[in-house]
Design a protein around this nucleic acid. Structure first.
Lengths: 220, 220
DNA sequence: TTTATTTTTCAACGCTTGTTGAAATAGAGC
DNA sequence: GCTCTATTTCAACAAGCGTTGAAAAATAAA
C-alpha cells in the first residue's frame, strides 16, 4: 500500500472549509462555496471526505490531537515545576490558555479559524452536546482535577460553575467577533490573544478564589 | 386604519422561529420547518414579515425594548439606592444579570429561546458585528460608565477586557448548551439561571477588582 | 346580507442544494 | 513505452429552498 502519493487539494479543501464553517456555521456554507474558494470541483470534497458532515468532522479531527497534547503538556510542565502543594490557580489557568496563543503564533491562520470553529460549536445548543465531549472531555477533566487540588475544601459545584465562566470568556475570545474592538473604540482588539489572556488569567484566578473559598489563596 | 384585527398565527410564527433559530442558527432553519411547527402555510411567513431575513429581525425586535428597559431600570434602581460613591461592582453586575432571570421567571419559554438566540449572534463572527451594536450598545455604555465610576483610577482598556470576560461567561450561560450538566455529572444545570448568576456575580466582581485595581475594593 | 379588508392557503416558479456515476487526467512501477 | 491506481473533473440527478401571484377563507363594517 503505497502512501507516497499525496493530494494537495485535499488540504486546501480542509483549510477553506475550516475558514468558512468558522465564519458562517455548518449550514451557512455550501460545498460549492468551499470548492470554489479552494479552486476545486464540487465532487472532490465528496471523493475525499464523503458526506458534508464527514468533511465537517474531518476539519475537527485534523488538529484535535495536536491541540490537546499541547495543552496537556503545559499542564504537566507546570505540575512538574511546582512544589508538593501543586501549581497555583494562576499557573493552571495559564497552562489552559497560553497554548492557544502558541497555536496562533505558528503563523498558520488556519489555527485561528480552527479555534473560532471550536467557539462556534461550544456555544451551539445543537453541536455542543454532540461534539465538545468527544473532543475535550479528557482534557477538561485533567484541568478540573488540578484546580480541585489547588482549591482544597472547595465544593465541586462551585468549581464547575467557575470553570463554566472561564469557558465562556475563552469561547467569546476565540470566536473573534470584533465586538470589543468597536465597544472600546479600538483600545482592545479581538485579534490580540496575548492581551486577552493577560487580562483573562488574573480575572479568572481571582474569580475562582472568591467563589471557591479563601483556602486557595495566592502563593508566592 | 382599524388596528383591532389581530393575527394569532403571526405570533406563533415568531415563537417557533425564535425557538428554531436559537437551536440551529439562521441558515439551519427553513421557512417550511417554521411553518410546519407553527401549523401554518409557508407563504404566511412571507405575508407577515417579507423575506426570511426580515423574519429573523422581527424576532429580535419583538422583545428588545422590553429587555433593555428592564436592565436599565435595574441599573437606575441600584444607582438611586446607593450613596454618593455610587453602587458597588457587585451591585452593578447584579443589575446587569438578574433581569435576565426575571425574564425567564415569567414562565414564558419564549424568553429562554430569545436569550439563547442572543447568545448565538453574540458569538457569531458573521451576525455579531451587524446585530449586537444595534441592539445593545446603548445599554452596555451605561453599564460601562457605572463600572468606571465604581473602579476609580482603572484604565479603560482593563475595564473593557473585564467586560468582555463577563459577556463571554453570560453568553455561554444563555446559550444553554447543557455542557456543564454533563461535565459536572448533574451537579450543575444549564437551565438553572439563578445558580449560574449566584456564582457569576461574585466571580466577575472579584475579577474586575483584581484586574482594575484595588481601589475599587468591596464596600460594606 | 352585502361589501370591503385582512388573513390564510394553494400551487407553482426558478434556483440551489448535496450527492453520484462515469469519464478524464495524472503519477508510480514496471 | 504501457499499466494500474489515485486523483480530479464533468454532467446530471432528485430534493428542497425562498419567494410570489392568485384564489380562498375569515373577519369587520355597512
Amino acid at each position: 500500500m503505497t502512501k507516497t502519493r499525496q493530494a494537495p487539494k485535499r488540504e486546501r479543501i480542509l483549510d477553506v472549509a475550516e475558514e468558512l464553517f468558522a465564519l458562517r456555521g455548518y449550514d451557512g456554507v455550501t460545498l460549492r462555496q468551499i470548492a470554489n474558494n479552494a479552486g476545486v470541483d464540487v465532487a472532490l470534497a465528496s471523493y475525499h471526505f464523503g458526506k458534508k458532515l464527514d468533511l465537517f468532522n474531518a476539519v475537527f479531527e485534523r488538529r484535535a490531537a495536536h491541540l490537546n497534547s499541547a495543552r496537556l503538556d503545559a499542564l504537566e510542565a507546570c505540575q512538574a515545576s511546582a512544589d508538593a502543594a501543586g501549581p497555583t490557580v494562576e499557573q493552571i489557568i495559564e497552562a489552559f490558555l497560553r497554548p492557544l496563543e502558541l497555536a496562533q503564533e505558528t503563523g498558520d491562520p488556519g489555527w485561528q479559524n480552527y479555534l473560532a470553529l471550536i467557539a462556534y460549536i461550544n456555544n451551539s445548543p445543537y453541536w455542543g452536546p454532540r461534539m465538545m465531549s468527544k473532543l475535550f472531555d479528557g482534557l477538561v477533566s485533567a484541568f478540573i482535577a488540578a484546580l480541585r487540588k489547588a482549591l482544597p475544601g472547595a465544593r465541586d459545584e462551585d468549581i464547575y460553575w467557575c470553570y463554566h465562566n472561564l469557558s465562556g470568556a475563552l469561547t467569546l475570545t476565540l470566536a473573534q467577533t470584533g465586538r470589543i474592538d468597536k465597544l472600546s473604540g479600538g483600545k482592545c482588539l479581538s485579534a490580540d490573544f496575548e492581551a486577552a489572556y493577560d487580562h483573562m488569567i488574573p480575572f479568572v484566578a481571582a474569580g475562582f478564589r472568591e467563589v471557591c473559598g479563601r483556602s486557595g489563596k495566592k502563593r508566592a
